[in-house]
Amino acid sequence: MPLPEGIFDAYLFDCDGTIADSMPVHFVAWRQTLATWGADFTEEQFYAWGGRPIVDIVTDLNSQQGLTMPVAEVAALQERTFHEMLPQVKAVPGVLAHIEDAYGRVPFAVVSGSTRASVTASLTALGLLDRFDVMVCAGDYTLGKPEPECFLLAASKLGVAPDRCLVFEDTDYGMRAAAAAGMAAVRVPSPLNRS
């Protein structure tokens, strides 16, 4: 996974689908969770909405499908279901190689639309939690990806100018957020597009 030209003083990583090859597992957890309420969530829509906070997804599914799913309850169940499946999750090889190569030379942050509990569980399962100086998760910012707020907050916490940060992302929303923050980015291929 080649990096863009430039000198970067910090690496900002999305978690699900970027560090953790967890998107297929998250999709299964979503499908199992939403079946309880009769909600439909296609794989295409799931990947298109990648990077969005769980509560936003449930709210929008309610609106689109005329449902009244209890947002907090659905979000909690989706997280519990995903956590039960964590042993199936592995690291994305190309991203893991960059983490191993740059660890100790470049400060890292995780910038995720998932909750802190979910990100912590994923990184712990992968044995990578201690690699990250900063975590910015759902609840730490107001406007989620594609807005740049989460990436700008991570850069601020690391004390690095936005234009000196390199973002690793797997979603359109995340790539748009990185661009809006004035940051260079590496697009991590989806599981279907990795060689």
Score class of each variant (00 low, 15 high):
90 K>P: 00
32 Q>T: 15
40 D>V: 15
24 P>R: 11
41 F>L: 12
166 L>V: 05
129 L>D: 02
170 D>G: 05
71 V>A: 14
189 P>N: 05
102 A>R: 06
10 A>N: 10
124 T>R: 12
13 F>N: 12
117 A>Q: 08
164 R>L: 01
108 F>Q: 14
169 E>P: 11
6 G>M: 00
146 P>Q: 10
90 K>E: 10
94 G>T: 07
121 A>N: 09
110 V>M: 09
127 G>Q: 10
146 P>D: 14
77 L>F: 10
54 I>C: 14
137 C>I: 01
4 P>I: 11
72 A>P: 08
44 E>G: 09
26 H>W: 06
89 V>K: 02
101 D>E: 15
64 Q>P: 00
111 V>G: 06
137 C>Y: 07
149 E>M: 12
83 H>Y: 02
34 L>H: 10
60 D>L: 15
1 M>R: 12
55 V>D: 10
4 P>Q: 13
64 Q>Y: 14
66 G>M: 11
18 T>R: 11
45 Q>H: 13
22 S>N: 03
188 V>N: 03
22 S>E: 05
166 L>C: 13
115 T>I: 10
104 G>N: 13
13 F>G: 05
171 T>Y: 11
93 P>L: 02
98 H>C: 08
82 F>I: 09
190 S>F: 02
170 D>P: 03
42 T>Q: 06
83 H>W: 03
195 S>L: 08
52 R>H: 01
191 P>W: 08
192 L>Y: 07
36 T>F: 10
124 T>L: 03
100 E>I: 13
129 L>W: 02
11 Y>P: 11
24 P>C: 06
71 V>T: 11
43 E>P: 00
17 G>I: 11
64 Q>T: 11
36 T>H: 15
78 Q>V: 14
188 V>I: 02
170 D>Q: 06
111 V>N: 13
25 V>Q: 13
131 R>E: 01
30 W>Q: 11
141 Y>E: 10
67 L>P: 09
145 K>Y: 09
78 Q>K: 12
143 L>F: 09
48 A>W: 01
113 G>T: 04
153 L>I: 15
52 R>P: 00
147 E>S: 13
